[in-house]
Amino acid sequence: MGLRSVVAVGCLVCLAGVASTAEARPASKGIFTEAGVGATAFIRKRKSASIGPTLTLRGGYDVFSWFSLAAFAGASSHEATVPAPPEGEWFQLYRGGADARLGFRVKSVAAFAEGGIGGAYISSNVLQKVGLTDPGEHFSIAFHAGGGLEYQILNRHYAFGLAGDWSLMPQLDAQTNLEIRAYIRYTY
């Protein structure tokens, strides 16, 4: 474990300690929905696709104040930057699945870690040229893991957040992506 990992774990432990003593801002708990916008970047074969806009939706249930389960769907759009031809062509990456989120809140700010499994669908075979898809292949299992920070406003139903997720799609040539998004959450 590197020095950075030790520092990160130490910070989390400290924050957890503070969380146990600080009084969290009142927030609804139960069924929630989230809508986020952001950007997704290809990490593997990053030269083959541009960073693209992302739209993500999530709906789930807070089992406890520190643990929730959710289903999600997302789409991102990218320009293929493979050697021409073709040139200037765009494709979409759709993802959906289920995930779990662990977190805690200190006053109005919450931190969380999340991870899940689902599926991914790539809309065209334009990246076949660089081996990302095989002939006739569009689907892959997708795993993702990430975390974020969330700000609870005075209205107990609403919160805003910033999250990042790393995802892995084994059937799409083990492509890995990084998604960063800002979101709004409504808890019923």
Partner: peptide, 23 residues
């Protein structure tokens, strides 16, 4: 909120059903 959710999911679904090109 339910309406917004339906509209957004609908938009995502519609985007997925357009004629995607094959190269």
């Amino acid at each position: 909120h339910r309406g917004l959710l339906l509209v957004t999911f609908g938009a995502l679904g519609a985007a997925g059903c357009t004629q995607d090109p094959v190269y």
